[in-house]
Computed example of a mutant assay.
Amino acid sequence: MSFTLATWNINSVRLRSPLVQKFLIDHAPDVLCLQECKSPVDKIPLADFAALGYGHMVARGQKGYNGVAILSRLPIEDAGHIDWCQKGDARHVAAKLSNGVTVHNCYVPAGGDIPDRTLNDKFGHKLDYVEEMRTLFRDSRPEKAILVGDLNIAPREDDVWNHKALLKVVSHTPVEVEAFEAAREAGGWVDVTRQDIPQGQLYSWWSYRSPDWDAADKGRRLDHIWASADIGNAGHSSTVLRHVRGWEQPSDHAPVLASFDL
């Protein structure tokens, strides 16, 4: 079974339903994982996506905040969710494909602006969330699984536009990167994107604050596709669709894609 999977922080699935539809028409992934849907599940415009062949969905939602959804043109089963940090946030949902692969869709907290948990509860929440991920993966090593989402950490020096300038900026601080890599390694996860694109600057997010994001190109790779070690070599053809960031009224994230042969 071969399939293509995409992950995209959409920053309001209802507001940007036309962009999701355009993406599905233009790029036609078999599975699309969305984060920051900002919608209760029953308000997600599934009919718009079903009309394009994406009638299968599992999701967890909240009004105005967070929210994760997995859309698919392949049959999927709801595989539950994890309430990391026990805050009741809609930040994780899982779906199982007919080939037995479980897809985990995650939205890690952004962490606010101050990289100090004593001064910023949001940063503490982020670190706790990633630590709980590490503990789970250590205690229950994933098999036949794919984890994707806006993980809100750019781990490598070439995952940001300026490594030295961002060492004290949330998303690239050493404490976050260390926690991120500890979680990934605890589960034996393969970074599929960097397995396919091992060298060079690579970003999936550009701030709304930049008056000309494309020319300034001050990006970060915050969106990730991981595969468990047993299927890590099945992933290929990774790409970041940078041009989507330039669509009208876009999300500040671009979709990330990979294909799998399983």
Rank of each mutant, 00 (worst) to 15 (best):
D159C: 02
K168G: 07
T4H: 02
N120F: 01
K43Y: 04
A183W: 06
A51L: 03
D139M: 08
V160Q: 00
F123I: 09
V93F: 05
I197E: 02
G124C: 06
W161S: 03
D252F: 03
Q35R: 13
L262R: 02
R16W: 11
P255S: 13
P198G: 05
G88S: 07
V190L: 12
S228K: 07
A179H: 06
E181V: 14
G55W: 01
R16P: 03
S140A: 15
A227Y: 00
R138H: 14
L257Q: 13
S72I: 06
C85A: 15
R156F: 11
S237C: 08
E143C: 07
D261C: 12
G80V: 06
T118C: 05
G112E: 04
E248K: 12
M1Q: 08
P250A: 12
H236P: 01
F137C: 01
N105H: 04
L52C: 13
A186M: 03
A227T: 02
C106K: 00
W226G: 03
M133D: 05
L202S: 12
D261Y: 00
H243M: 11
R138I: 00
N11R: 08
C37R: 10
Q86S: 13
Q195N: 13
P142F: 01
L5D: 08
F260W: 04
D83Q: 09
F49K: 07
V68D: 06
E143G: 07
H92Q: 08
G188W: 00
W189Q: 08
R220W: 14
D223R: 09
P198A: 11
T102A: 10
A216N: 13
H243A: 15
